[in-house]
Computed example of a mutant assay.
Amino acid sequence: MKRTMDIVLSMIAIIVFIIPMSIIAILIKLDSEGPIIYKQQRPSKEKKLFNIYKFRTMRTDTPNVSTEELGDPSQFITKLGKFLRKSSLDELPQLFNILLGDMSIVGPRPALYNQYELIKMRDELGVNSIRPGLTGFAQVRGRDFISDKEKVKYDKYYLDNMSIWLDLKIILWTIRSVVKSEGVRVG
């Protein structure tokens, strides 16, 4: 049922957002040099690596590390990238990751491939047994403002209580956060 919901909702969202995504793609090309789509290896279900897709928000010479490790990430973020990150529009290409089966709409956010401690904690609690999500319970409970230990606690809660109803609540909380311009950002 969850996979069917992912396919149907991601297809609807792609149709709804195809024109805004096309406009964003043109604006990225006008704003800075480099590819429109940023691809990065992330672990999916059972830690199988996949390429996560995002609209590129940083310069092409940015080191491939988590945002927290960049020191002052603002020096690498493009002008358009600031807006895309704040509005979470940079995440729209992940609708294709959902359609391909790499991700789900709701689930734990995929860790960076080099977030070894987070991956290990998720392994210990079985969280890596489910598909990562575009949004998740940890994101609506604190996103970047909580520790990895807290993220894993929320991820485990989601794993233990997965249901269509919880997914719908998380989707609604995510929409509310994005509309309020809080963004739902992680990695």
Rank of each mutant, 00 (worst) to 15 (best):
V184Q: 03
P20E: 07
T62Q: 02
G107T: 05
K2I: 13
K29R: 15
K151C: 10
D160S: 13
P20D: 05
L95K: 08
T60P: 00
E33H: 12
P110K: 08
P73D: 03
V16C: 10
I170Q: 00
V184E: 00
M103G: 09
M11W: 06
L27H: 03
D31P: 11
I18R: 10
Q139E: 09
I77Q: 11
N51E: 12
V179H: 03
A111H: 12
P110N: 10
S163C: 04
S87V: 07
R176G: 13
I175T: 11
E33G: 11
K47L: 13
R85Q: 05
G126W: 11
F17I: 05
I7C: 09
R176K: 15
I130F: 09
T174Y: 05
S44L: 08
I52R: 00
I52V: 14
E124T: 06
K48L: 14
I28S: 07
F83L: 14
I171L: 15
I19M: 05
M1G: 14
K79I: 13
I175D: 06
T67K: 00
I24A: 02
F83C: 00
G136Y: 01
M5A: 15
P110G: 09
A25C: 04
S66V: 14
L27A: 14
E69P: 01
V16R: 00
G107K: 02
N51S: 11
Y157C: 06
D61R: 06
K120L: 11
K169R: 15
M21I: 01
M58E: 02
K169M: 09
D155S: 05
I105D: 10
V8M: 15
M11I: 14
G126Y: 10
T60A: 12
K79V: 04
L118M: 11
L100V: 06
S177H: 09
R131S: 14
F55W: 05
R109K: 06
R42V: 02
E68P: 00
M5Q: 14
G34T: 11
V140W: 09
Q115K: 06
L168P: 08
K47C: 13
E91H: 10
L9H: 06
K39I: 07
I24R: 01
I77M: 04
I36A: 03
V16K: 00
R176A: 13
T57W: 04
D148N: 15
